[in-house]
């Protein structure tokens, strides 16, 4: 067999000692701060817009928000967490998250809107679909940045699937906030204005996942 070069060990240990790297505690702290910054940015933007809509019953708005928040929490846990493996979740799990996230949010929004007979049944236009689409993306921007920061350059196996799942998870947070704000409840509006941006973020995550999340030689 080819023997290990005798000086390789010393070279690697010396190179590692010269290059500082964050320990688990430091990394956990920076991940926590990134999450906090993302939550503050999205909630700040949400509050700047005036808080939840007054045109719907508060209990239904709260129900919609809590359900969507739970969906976002589960999606984030599945997408960003590694489980018990350093290589993260399986490709199948990640792809499922990216597909299920917009569907789950849409389904929950439809259920919540069905409970509110006082919600406006008409008045939606393509402009209102577009406004919600843009604001969902804006609400999701900070979570996208935080998740990309936490998992950047870390996936040697399936970065595209990871990108899609992270995009879907971040998009669901945006979907939660737009659900709380938006008074429109028709299936068309919820699909185009609330769920479609999540699907778009998942697609963008798949597109740029290899570049941002993939492990690369330095």
């Amino acid at each position: 067999m080819s023997a290990l070069p005798p000086n390789l060990r010393a070279r690697i240990l010396e190179a590692a000692s010269r290059e500082p790297s964050p320990t688990r505690a430091v990394r956990s702290r920076s991940a926590f701060l990134a999450s906090l910054a993302a939550a503050s940015a999205s909630l700040g933007l949400s509050l700047a817009l005036g808080g939840p809509t007054a045109k719907r019953r508060a209990a239904v708005v709260a129900l919609a928000g809590v359900g969507a928040g739970l969906a976002a929490l589960v999606a984030t846990w599945l997408a960003a967490g590694r489980g018990s493996s350093m290589l993260g979740r399986s490709r199948g799990t990640l792809v499922s998250v990216s597909i299920a996230a917009p569907i789950a949010l849409l389904a929950w929004s439809l259920v919540a809107s069905g409970m509110d007979p006082s919600a406006p049944a008409a008045g939606e236009t393509w402009v209102s679909h577009g406004v919600c689409f843009v604001f969902t993306l804006l609400f999701a921007a900070a979570p996208v940045a935080a998740l990309a920061y936490v998992r950047r350059g870390s996936d040697p196996v399936h970065p595209r699937a990871l990108g899609a799942a992270l995009g879907g998870a971040a998009g669901t947070w945006g979907g939660m906030l737009i659900d709380v704000h938006c008074a429109f409840t028709s299936p068309l509006h919820l699909t185009l204005g609330h769920a479609a941006p999540i699907a778009l973020l998942a697609a963008l995550g798949a597109l740029f996942g290899a570049r941002i999340l993939g492990l690369r030689a330095k």
Binding site: A16, S21, T23, L215, A217
Partner: peptide
């Protein structure tokens, strides 16, 4: 091998 170990070194904080 050297690159692999340095990548592990850089990512040590994320080790589960």
């Amino acid at each position: 091998v050297q690159q692999t170990f340095l990548q592990m070194h850089r990512a040590r904080g994320s080790f589960v």
